[in-house]
Design a protein around this nucleic acid. Structure first.
Length: 868
RNA sequence: GCCCCGAUGGCGGAAUUGGUAGACGCGACGGAUUCAAAAUCCGUUUCUGGUAACAGAGUGGGAGUUCGAUUCUCCCUCGGGGCACCA
């Protein structure tokens, strides 16, 4: 064993041992419990960032811990390889997206390997390879034939200068990021997954996901947004509209129907189009509504605006004429593209009605009274007894819902309906670097799915996009084809799929990554699935996780998997943050400096008071702690850290700095602290090793001091087992090992019994650290005299007899305030404890002149004396 | 705007069914070792008052429940994530 801790040598040696033994290659072993541990695969953006390192370390700790529990652990890795950044890089560097992506993958794979992850690399996949996306296309054609995929128009961001569709991210303040042109909403035909067909199941099966954070399930429930309400039809006023018909709306508050004073329609609604004919002002407003992007956050925060039309509809109950308004907050793609407005009981309608002086009619008695005076109060939105509603007066919400529903039904003007907020998933992208949609457009046969024997539709890999429109649409050699049905000349679809499609099923492909007879080998898929533990960023709480759940159900209904949900347990990791530093430039902009280039000044208490740029010694502003990003220039390069300190130190620091589901603040001195700890472990082991092999302790003859050492060992095992195995709180597990090390370093080391205890203690340290810092543990295990590898060792067991104590310290409180401690025998009676507490000097002092009313004894914890 | 989450010493964090607030680490301060430095080791470290013993205050702010609240309830402030074409 070397004297000095040398991470680079130790890590290279451990990784070589694992490679030679193919230690992490797994197959379907009958009779052994499986454990499928999956971290969200990375987008190959160029190089690893700290978020990746954190994600994959968390996954690796769990995978290695489960292996030590005797499980057959699958931990795979792959690449979410399609996406927009490759196209942007291509435009900037004139390199084809494929070449850029593959070279990034090669570099990042090397980086991942240097972290020492227990990954089965033989299962690696990349979603941009035809043998992967071929099966996505295959499933697409099945679903198209089943009607689960269909075509309809959808609204996109249109850049009129670049003549291209933009992602929401590429629309900044309503303008195109490259052209600067004002963006318009445009309707184009797209393919959709009918995810709403599965809305009810996606909602109800959340209850089965007991291993998911409540927070994520709540977000998904709200996103799916089931609401029970009423579809209500307002008959057209033929005098103003000119023909018969009804305006359909959906409301969750049919009890307030008598309070409806106007209706509002979206700019794209047929009634709006009709009203705009010959009305320049209205047409201008409709055009204005079409400007700007489609992102909901922008639409929801814009000023609510509207314009009246000369059109009227009739109230379905009273026949009263209600004006039709065009409003920018009503969206065509949501519900019916029209809403009934009840200003007295809806905050948005109230604001709109106040602005445009529309009537406000209270119809519910709320806790704020019978009227709706300004300003709006939440109480006006309450449910309550109906007023001003003629025959419905006095009814509560439920009976009003039923009564009004019956009247509407008799008139043929409405019925109860359940509506979801969730919308069908539009997957068409007018981009190049994605999976081609396997459809052929034939003039006589319509949309024809590509037959199985013509799959995959291969994406040409040598294309460099120019940012104007879809490259595939400019390549006749790609789109010219013949109809598979009738043989006539036809045109291949040139849109590609949303990259969320690839990431919705990759977890299943890892079970049989090279299988060429189908999307998955059902036997292998059912052997490994569902994933036991899924780990990834909280930012995926809704979209990715919902789409993957949806896909799992689609695959189940195709007979490919036999489970209902893909991920049994979910761990959502927090972000990685770092300090920011900047200087304000003359033009008001900020120049950001990397923390690695900045020196810190502290005051007498160690508080950071100033910072200077190392290169010029001049001060910089302290900008606070933020998510590591290019824009704030506060990223810390994982590679530099691994090169300087080694993978074990980086892994240890990241796991120690905060629990996995919280954000993590990068700290250089924290990294040094982690390194210092590993050096201490190394040094103590080295000293122990130098004295030759140790024997086994004779547990019957331990001194009190030795018992205390052994108790510390087993307390650490107990703590770490709970923290890692049950709570995924690696920070406190590491704290437990540190506490144990503090004890072991101070314990005597020369007597035979002491040496035996130190051996047990160091083995415990190595075993508990094995999932977290696997390389040093690998080496320590060898030096402790073991011939098998620590990755195949079993997790240590707590010896409960080592934890037993003869006496306990109890806390004494007077009126809930800490006033002292007493030492009592572990088996002392309640009476004895109470009497000892009453005799306590401090208790006598603080209860002097008071009457003791009550004594509360919490066994093993405290005594509280209540006096006044 | 809507949905979800968070806030504890100088800093990261701990407190596992409501029961000792500050485990563990970082930083800072003092000391040892050293020609000196690095490294290492020992000690102190929530705040206020006090030489000290000790006392009081204290978990973003305000109220409440309780013998007892970081933990439960209500209201508020600030920060973060998501909002369907970033991944």
């Amino acid at each position: 064993m070397q004297e000095q801790y040398s991470p680079s040598e130790i890590e290279a040696a451990a990784q070589a041992d694992w490679d030679n033994a193919e230690a992490f290659k797994v197959s379907e072993t009958p009779g052994q419990d499986t454990y499928y541990c999956l971290s969200m695969f990375p987008y190959p953006s160029g190089k690893l960032h700290m978020g990746h390192v954190r994600n994959y370390t968390i996954g690796d700790v769990i995978a290695r811990y489960q292996r030590m529990q005797g499980k057959n652990v699958l931990q795979p890795m792959g690449w979410d390889a399609f996406g927009m950044p490759a196209e942007n890089a291509a435009m900037n560097n004139k390199v084809a997206p494929a070449a850029w992506t593959y070279s990034n993958i090669d570099y990042m794979r090397t980086q991942l390997k240097s972290l020492g992850l227990a990954i089965d690399w033989t299962r690696e996949i990349a979603t941009c390879k035809p043998d992967y996306y071929r099966w996505e296309q295959w499933l697409f054609t099945r679903l198209f034939e089943k009607g689960i995929i269909y075509r309809k128009n959808g609204t996109v961001n249109w850049d009129p200068v670049d003549q291209t569709v933009l992602a929401n991210e590429q629309v900044i303040d309503g303008k195109g990021w490259r052209s600067g042109a004002v963006i318009e909403k445009r309707e184009i035909p797209m393919y959709y997954f009918a995810i709403t067909n599965y809305a009810e199941e996606l909602l109800s099966s959340l209850d089965e996901l007991t291993g998911w954070p409540e927070q994520v399930k709540t977000m998904q429930r709200n996103w799916i947004g089931k609401s029970v309400g009423m579809e209500v039809q307002f008959p057209y006023d033929t005098a103003s509209i000119g023909h018969d018909g009804t305006l359909k709306v959906f409301t969750t508050r049919p009890d307030t129907l008598m309070g409806a004073t106007y209706v509002a329609v979206a700019a794209e609604h047929p009634l709006a189009t009709q009203a705009a004919e010959g009305n320049a002002e209205l047409q201008a407003f409709i055009d204005e509504c079409k400007r700007g992007g489609v992102a909901e956050a922008d639409i929801a925060t814009q000023e609510k605006k509207g314009l009246p039309t000369p059109l009227y509809v009739l109230h379905p109950l009273t026949g009263e004429k209600l004006p039709v308004w065009v409003a920018n907050y009503v969206l065509m793609g949501y519900g019916e593209g029209a809403v009934m407005a009840v200003p007295a009981h809806d905050e948005r309608d109230f604001a709109f009605a106040s602005k445009y002086r529309l009537p406000i009619k209270p119809v519910i008695r709320t806790s704020a009274g019978d009227a709706t005076p300004e300003p709006w109060q939440d109480a006006y939105g309450e449910k309550g007894e109906l007023i001003n509603s003629e025959e419905f007066d006095g009814l509560d919400y439920d009976s009003a819902f039923t009564a009004i529903g019956e009247v509407l039904k008799q008139k043929g003007l409405g019925e109860p309906r359940t509506q979801f907020r969730l919308r069908d998933w539009g997957i068409s992208r007018q981009r190049y670097w994605g999976c081609p949609i396997p459809i052929i457009h034939c003039d006589s046969c319509g949309d024809v799915p590509v037959p199985d024997d013509q799959l995959p539709v291969v994406l040409p890999e040598d294309v460099i996009p120019d940012g104007a429109g879809s490259p595939l649409a400019k390549m006749p050699e790609f789109y010219e084809c013949t109809c598979p049905k009738c043989g006539a000349a036809a045109k291949r679809e040139t849109d590609t799929m949303d990259t969320f499609v690839e990431s919705s099923w990759y977890y299943a492909r890892y079970a049989s990554p090279q299988y060429d007879q189908g999307m998955v080998d059902p036997a292998a898929a059912n052997h490994w699935l569902p994933v036991d533990q899924y780990i990834g960023g909280i930012e995926h709480a809704i979209l990715h996780l919902l789409y993957a759940r949806f896909f799992h159900k689609l695959m189940r209904d195709e007979g490919l998997v036999n489970s209902n949900e893909p991920f049994k347990n979910l761990l959502t990791q927090g972000m990685v943050l770092a300090d920011t530093y900047y200087r304000l430039e003359a033009n008001g902009s900020k120049t950001w400096f990397n923390p690695a280039d900045v020196d810190i000044e502290r005051d007498g208490k160690g508080k950071i008071v100033a910072a200077t740029l190392r290169s010029d010694g001049q001060p910089v502003e302290i900008g606070g702690t933020e998510k590591m990003s290019k824009s704030k220039n506060n990223g810390v390069d994982p590679q530099a850290m691994i090169d300087q300190y080694g993978a074990d130190t980086c892994r240890l620091f990241m796991m120690f700095a905060s629990p996995p589901d919280m954000s993590l603040e990068w700290s250089d001195s924290g990294v040094e602290g982690a390194q210092r700890f590993l050096r201490r472990v190394w040094r103590l082991s080295q000293q122990h090793h130098a004295k030759g092999p140790a024997g086994k302790a004779d547990l019957g003859s331990l001194s009190d001091e030795q018992k205390a050492v052994r108790r510390a060992i087993h307390l650490a095992i107990k703590q770490a087992s709970q923290d890692i195995g049950q709570h995924h709180k690696f920070n406190t597990a590491i704290a437990a090992v540190m506490t144990l090390m503090n004890v072991l370093e101070k314990a005597p080391q020369d007597a035979e019994q002491d040496r035996a205890l130190l051996q047990e203690g160091l083995e415990t340290v190595a075993l508990v650290l094995a999932p977290i810092a696997p390389h040093i543990s690998h080496s320590l295990w060898q030096s402790l005299g073991h011939s098998d590898a620590i990755i195949d060792a079993r997790w240590p067991q707590v010896d409960e007899s080592a934890l037993v104590q003869d006496s306990l310290q109890l806390v004494i409180q007077v009126n809930g305030k800490l006033r002292g401690h007493i030492e009592v025998a572990a088996d002392a009676s309640r009476e004895l404890i109470e009497a000892t507490a009453r005799d306590n000097e401090n208790v006598l002092r603080f209860t002097e002149g008071l009457t003791i009313r009550k004594v509360i004894v919490v066994p093993g914890k405290l005594v509280n004396i209540v006096a006044n």
